[in-house]
Computed example of a mutant assay.
Amino acid sequence: MTDPLEKARQIADDVLFPAALAVDATGVIPSGHLDLLAEAGFYGMAAEEVAPAGQAAAARVVETLAGGCLATTFVWMQHHGAVRAVAGSGRPDLIEEWLDPLCRGERRSGVALGALRPGPPSVRATRVGGGYRLDGASPWVTGWGMIDVLHTAARDESDTAIWALVDAVPGPTLGVRPLELVAANASATVEVTFDGHHVPAERVTATLPYAEWGARDAAGLRMNGSFALGVAERAIRLLDPGPYALTAELDACRAALDAATPESLPVARAAASELAMRAATTLTVAAGARSVLRDHHAQRLVREATFLLVFGSRPPIKSALLKLVSHQRATPA
């Protein structure tokens, strides 16, 4: 990719956005959307050699694509955790078998993070001959039916996080329950249940003491803010003329996210989510009664902004967002 951002803009404006209402209405992402992202090289974006410009440049790509179609971008985005894990595994066998196919989008991945939430793990890993046995359930698994493998987290008896590549194929030991989302429902988000599911040792990408997971998680939450910026930017572009104040806020939110430390990131993430909702509701008011019709982008963007108020959240982000919203609420006369 010689100019990833320009390519992302072309795909978002020429392909994703024109189809976004149909994707929202039917609950189905055309396979050509994801194939196009693979052909453009975007499935390998997380690999260092593909995205040498770093996180800020990758974040702009995510933002741009999300402004085209949030559901498509949401499914594609889940893939990158597996790319990073395989590339950083230090295991030549795993890298040789998986890295190139993942980067080319020939193998596509989702992610199952449920076991990493605070409290008792929702998915347990028990060491058995030749690998691990998985038991439990992981909610919010995205892209079912569009992915080949699931980068799955579990925790063992010593509270070590075990990451492994699990084939995304239902069977006697792996069950799936579809979830209905208020927005981006075409992402095919499900709950995955493991019942004595065997994972070979050669599929394990990493192990990490769970006590160390919080710091790593906090450092990686910036990219989720790009979803909100993408929705905000699309709403602002649909306003005619676009209000300068909202455009300036969008630039400021992006700069704050790019510069954020793990300590300042919750406030920056909250500001991005709040801006997405405010931009979408501004578009709704400006468009008038027609904005509540299902064939108008305003209602879709409001629902997507609602979804992004809670997606990828953590307690500090929720706290910052509640504080921000309560401070901006009008005081009765």
Rank of each mutant, 00 (worst) to 15 (best):
L94A: 12
G129C: 14
H198V: 15
G214W: 00
G110L: 06
P332I: 15
Q328K: 14
R155D: 03
L208D: 07
M223A: 15
L165D: 00
G175A: 10
A286T: 10
W213E: 08
L301M: 02
D3W: 00
I147D: 05
L165T: 03
A20V: 10
Y244K: 13
V123Y: 03
A56T: 15
G214C: 05
D217W: 12
A57Y: 00
V199M: 07
A201N: 08
A71T: 12
V50H: 15
R133A: 12
L221P: 05
A333W: 03
V166W: 03
I29A: 10
R155H: 02
L181M: 14
L324H: 06
P262S: 01
M277D: 12
F42I: 02
A289E: 14
A245G: 14
A40S: 10
P172H: 07
A218F: 10
L283V: 09
A259C: 11
E106A: 15
V267N: 06
A85C: 05
S313I: 07
S313Y: 00
H197R: 11
W163M: 12
G288Y: 10
F227K: 04
D295Y: 09
E6A: 15
P139L: 14
R216S: 11
G81Y: 02
G230Y: 04
G131W: 02
W163V: 10
G145S: 02
L238P: 00
E191L: 10
L250N: 01
A85I: 07
L70E: 08
T2Q: 09
G67K: 04
L113C: 06
G119N: 09
F17Q: 13
V123I: 02
P52Q: 07
T142H: 03
V192G: 05
L134F: 09
H80V: 12
D240G: 09
F311C: 04
Y132S: 14
L37M: 11
L324D: 14
E304Q: 03
A12Y: 03
H197P: 14
P92Y: 01
V111A: 14
L324A: 15
P139G: 13
T73I: 05
L239V: 15
G119T: 08
A87F: 00
P30D: 08
S226P: 05
A19T: 12
N185K: 00
R269W: 02
R222P: 07
G145A: 09
V123E: 06
A228W: 05
V111G: 04
A53E: 13
A47F: 02
G225P: 04
E6G: 15
C103H: 02
T152R: 04
A211R: 07
A20W: 03
A137G: 10
A286M: 03
K7M: 13
E48C: 10
A260L: 12
L250M: 04
T26R: 05
V28E: 10
S273N: 08
E304P: 00
G214S: 08
A53W: 02
L65F: 01
A186I: 09
P118C: 12
T261Q: 09
E212F: 01
S313W: 01
F74L: 05
S158P: 00
V231H: 06
A183R: 00
